[in-house]
Amino acid sequence: MKIIIAGGTGFLGESLRRFFQTKNHEVLILTRHPKSTNEIFWDAKNIGEWSHTLENADVLINLAGKSVDCRYTEKNKAEIYSSRIPSTQVLQNAINLCEIKPKLWLNASSATIYIHSESKQNTEKNGIIGDDFSMNICKSWEAEFFKQKDSFTRKVALRTSIVLGNDGGAFPKLKTVTKWGLGGKQGNGNQMVSWIHIEDFCRAISFIINDESVSGAINITAPNPISNQFLMKELRAKMKRSFGLDAAVWQLEMASIFLNTETELLLKSRNVVPEILLQKGFQFQYSSISSAISQLLQR
């Protein structure tokens, strides 16, 4: 296949690149800072030479967007928005110019589109979508993505949870705090954590590519959300750390200022399950957090 990954130089993009290249697919990366022959310049705003790469592509995957791991200042909020919606718009414009359009377009979204929930599990069908900055970004993103209906290009929005891997994302940070005795629960520890192992993330994307009946918004997460307290307990046990300091909300609020981040990333309860993937028959290699952590620590 010919696979285009827009914004593909981060943790998820690099993982997908390796995954598909090992299966002998052609992978081209759209990036602001190309460094190799299979990386092509784009500014995520304007039609350019990059748009020709979409011609007759099998798959377009859009991962472009400023990281939400920052303070939600007005400037950062504007950049989070402007890095998502315009890039989606310009990709649609580029597809419209193609004589032979991509067969499938996967666009990033987030499991944080659902409300804070400690008890109710949010599926694609019955999940409750709320109203705050993060959820509204996701809603605007998906609305822009699905605004134009195209019979030639199947569209899937990837409502992805926390992806656990050794090469980026949350897991290296969790290992570090646990190593230094700070691996207790955050807040009351009751907030649910929806997660997926990086290998299952890549496999889920491949599964969606190959199952033409999958379209619309899809939860990309392991089937068993866990509490923050259980996650940290499992991590301490696997790392053989008997002790981990808890962090109260006020401590997290103070630390988030110095770490230039937001406590929402730790304290929001993301209780999301992949109902459609399970109904379609996707088999997770890592359905328990214990097996996921064990494999990541072995590497």
Score class of each variant (00 low, 15 high):
residue 173 K to N: 01
residue 83 S to M: 04
residue 49 E to Y: 11
residue 85 I to V: 08
residue 146 F to G: 04
residue 62 N to L: 01
residue 117 S to Y: 13
residue 145 F to K: 03
residue 267 L to Q: 09
residue 11 F to P: 01
residue 96 N to Y: 07
residue 264 E to F: 13
residue 197 H to T: 06
residue 109 S to V: 02
residue 253 E to W: 07
residue 144 E to M: 10
residue 296 L to M: 07
residue 31 T to N: 07
residue 180 W to A: 03
residue 9 T to E: 02
residue 294 S to T: 15
residue 202 C to M: 08
residue 15 S to Q: 01
residue 254 M to C: 14
residue 30 L to H: 10
residue 70 C to Q: 11
residue 39 E to G: 07
residue 297 L to Y: 00
residue 81 Y to T: 13
residue 214 V to F: 05
residue 141 W to K: 06
residue 121 Q to F: 11
residue 40 I to G: 09
residue 91 L to A: 02
residue 40 I to E: 08
residue 219 N to F: 11
residue 268 K to E: 14
residue 104 L to W: 01
residue 159 R to D: 07
residue 87 S to M: 02
residue 149 K to E: 15
residue 204 A to S: 13
residue 79 E to Y: 05
residue 53 T to I: 12
residue 40 I to V: 14
residue 169 G to D: 00
residue 91 L to W: 03
residue 290 S to Y: 12
residue 255 A to K: 03
residue 25 H to L: 05
residue 120 K to S: 13
residue 214 V to H: 03
residue 141 W to G: 11
residue 160 T to Y: 07
residue 186 Q to F: 15
residue 264 E to K: 14
residue 191 Q to G: 14
residue 77 K to D: 01
residue 256 S to Q: 10
residue 39 E to Q: 13
residue 184 G to I: 01
residue 42 W to I: 04
residue 202 C to R: 04
residue 82 S to G: 09
residue 105 W to P: 09
residue 4 I to D: 00
residue 171 F to D: 00
residue 265 L to N: 12
residue 121 Q to P: 12
residue 263 T to M: 03
residue 92 Q to C: 11
residue 80 I to C: 04
residue 201 F to L: 05
residue 213 S to Y: 04
residue 219 N to G: 11
residue 253 E to N: 14
residue 196 I to F: 02
residue 177 V to M: 06
residue 109 S to K: 03
residue 205 I to E: 08
residue 287 S to N: 12
residue 46 N to C: 07
residue 228 N to I: 09
residue 104 L to A: 01
residue 98 C to W: 01
residue 289 I to S: 04
residue 220 I to R: 03
residue 72 Y to E: 02
residue 262 E to C: 08
residue 153 T to G: 01
residue 245 L to F: 15
residue 203 R to M: 06
residue 156 V to Q: 02
residue 65 G to W: 05
residue 270 R to F: 11
residue 23 K to Y: 04
residue 51 S to G: 06
residue 179 K to F: 02
residue 276 I to W: 05
residue 96 N to M: 08
residue 170 A to G: 07
residue 114 Y to W: 10
residue 222 A to P: 09
residue 89 Q to N: 09
residue 158 L to P: 12
residue 281 G to M: 00
residue 22 T to R: 10
residue 33 H to S: 15
residue 263 T to H: 09
residue 143 A to R: 10
residue 176 T to G: 01
residue 49 E to T: 15
residue 75 K to M: 04
residue 215 S to C: 12
residue 83 S to C: 06
residue 283 Q to D: 11
residue 108 A to T: 07
residue 10 G to V: 00
residue 211 D to H: 14
residue 118 E to W: 07
residue 107 N to Q: 05
residue 51 S to R: 08
residue 63 L to S: 06
residue 277 L to A: 05
residue 219 N to H: 13
residue 262 E to T: 15
residue 274 P to A: 00
residue 229 Q to L: 12
residue 1 M to F: 04
residue 205 I to P: 14
residue 228 N to S: 10
residue 64 A to D: 09
residue 185 K to T: 12
residue 94 A to H: 05
residue 132 D to V: 12
residue 178 T to C: 04
residue 36 S to A: 13
residue 24 N to G: 09
residue 8 G to V: 00
residue 137 I to Y: 05
residue 73 T to M: 03
residue 113 I to W: 08
residue 205 I to G: 10
residue 109 S to N: 08
residue 150 D to S: 10
residue 19 F to A: 03
residue 243 F to Y: 15
residue 79 E to W: 01
residue 149 K to T: 15
residue 103 K to H: 04
residue 5 I to F: 02
residue 259 L to S: 14
